[in-house]
């Protein structure tokens, strides 16, 4: 890395440090990693101490809904990644379409989540419910972690969709262009992180029984 002074303007280019911007985004993602990482540690310890009850709990989740949501998020990661290629190739409309599809898929994920949680609530499974409190300690812990971790993840999906909506506006107003797309890259990085967290949440809650 050079310490030499870089002229602010050079051949009409405004000084930008896109690499620095991306690094800033990565540093933020690390704080997210620690946020969820702490919860994964709690999950690991309680699963270690209550293996049988965690298995019973995971059998009550709908694997199909979880699988569909995994595929929805993976596909949304694909479309947001492709939107960067589209803008790099100067294809503004296609890039807008791809980010739009990503937001639509985020909404599909949330609708699925809504029906999944509604079903859980309707059978009396929600934090502090009489039905849940009548169960063994391990199942209370399992469903507590299920609601907190998938809930916090869903909150990230909502935030990600809002960020991507702002990015669509930037693209349409030519604030994000073929020559300056680091904002789109940052938004995409956030979206991929949300995907990676789900990649781990999905097997830990839906599959290990």
């Amino acid at each position: 890395m050079t310490t030499a002074a870089i002229p602010a303007h050079h051949e009409g280019h405004v000084h930008r440090d896109d690499e620095g911007s991306r690094m800033g985004m990565w540093l933020f993602l690390f704080t997210e990693l620690i946020l969820f990482g702490g919860m994964f540690v709690i999950y690991a310890v309680y699963r270690f101490s209550h293996p049988a009850e965690f298995e019973l709990g995971s059998k009550e989740l709908d694997t199909l809904v979880g699988t569909v949501n995994t595929m929805v998020l993976l596909t949304s990661s694909l479309t947001v990644a492709m939107s960067i290629t589209a803008i790099q190739r100067g294809n503004k409309k296609f890039s807008l379409l791809l980010v739009g599809i990503t937001i639509a898929l985020a909404l599909v994920f949330l609708v699925n989540k809504y029906f999944e949680w509604s079903h859980k609530f309707s059978v009396g499974l929600y934090p502090q419910s009489p039905e849940l409190l009548s169960r063994p300690q391990g199942e209370i812990l399992y469903f507590g972690l299920y609601f907190v971790m998938t809930g916090l993840h869903a909150l990230h999906v909502i935030i990600g969709a809002v960020v991507l909506a702002v990015i669509m506006r930037f693209i349409s107003r030519d604030i994000i262009t073929k020559d300056s797309f680091v904002k789109l890259e940052a938004g995409a990085l956030y979206w991929h992180l949300v995907d990676i967290i789900w990649i781990f949440l999905f097997p830990l809650f839906y599959l290990v029984h």
Binding site: I6, P7, H13, D17, D18, T75, A81, I84, T85, D179
Partner: peptide, 19 residues
């Protein structure tokens, strides 16, 4: 630094393959 984006364009095909 001066030119901002150093484009590493990844083709659609490769993304679809990974997907």
């Amino acid at each position: 630094h001066q030119h901002g984006e150093k484009a590493h364009v990844v083709g659609y095909g490769q993304y679809i393959l990974i997907w």
